[in-house]
Amino acid sequence: MNNYVTVEKLTKKYGELVAVDNLSFTVGENEIFGFLGPNGAGKTTTLNVISTLSDYDRGSVDIAGYDLATNPVKIKALLGVVPQEIALYGLLTAAENIALFASLYGLRGKELKRAVDEALDFVGLADERKKRAGKLSGGMRRRLNIACGIAHRPKLIIMDEPTVGVDARSRDMILRSIRALRDGGATIIYTSHYMPEVQEIADRIAIIDKGRLAAIGTEKELLGYVTDRKSIRIVAGSGDTDAKRAAAADIAKLAGVKNAKYAEGGDELRVDVDLELANISPLLKVLMDRGVTIKSFEEEAPNLETTFLALTGSELGDDGDGYGGGEPAEDAGRGGHGERGASGGKQRRA
């Protein structure tokens, strides 16, 4: 696979704060590249540089053979950007919004009309083409936001949290669309706070922390980064919630325990340990001492969430280094980070 994007020793400072620190990575042509990091890790800053919105202090960015410092206009012509915010003209119709943004890339006449129709079909909004963007539902606006970024058939698509706040149906449609774009020849850089989503669609994933690359590779390769940690899933019986929380706090203090957390509102306690399963009796004793009944316990295979936690020391949360906001979630199943953070790939989805 040829490299489509090559970032070398990229550095970006805001005053004394080094937001991106000597960051290097490549994105292969025609791949979906997941870009993960905790709050303030430098994800959005990096994407802003790649998408030509930000200056940078050192390093180089090469896209399709063009150097960003010397050929920004050539690079802009290849780019499609789907911002985290829904950046649409609320008083224009869905079709007018797409036509406006596509026309900025030189599309005219029949070619433009065809691009608009295809983009509307692509995101499932053909029936809403004459509706003003401001009148569409949150999920529809999110899909229109994507359509505006891809209608001109860009070679490189940068998607920053494209599924924030959408319902399950819209999310599934968006993920299918992203795969279809990849299959159609586009290269996609994709960020999300929703780990399973990244696992589901990314061909390769980069994890950055404090502006530096912590790990990069396929999901399988990333899981190999952390070999000294296991997750134990303990299912407690119904009972006193305070007792369960107190037990989790006590367990977190035990030797060999890295993290202990309940799934929000649930009975599943996940404990990350560097112990063998045979040596977890102190864990179970704490639960019993607190009066928490144990229905079952089992060792979980390492997952991307465990790996992310081990590499960055924190869970995947809201991005704080640039973009913010996003509308409230339509889907209660995606409402809390605690829920999805605590239960790995098993969290409920509406």
């Binding site: 998408s51 030509t52 919105l53 206009v73 802009k76 012509a77 780019l79 950007v81 911002p83 915010e85 950046a87 649409l88 003209y89 943004f101 900025l104 890339y105 030189g106 505006c148 973009y323």
Partner: peptide, 12 residues
């Protein structure tokens, strides 16, 4: 609302 960013990332 980031519309200006969206316009600015185009070749315009």
């Amino acid at each position: 609302e980031r519309l200006l960013d969206r316009l600015s990332v185009s070749p315009k």
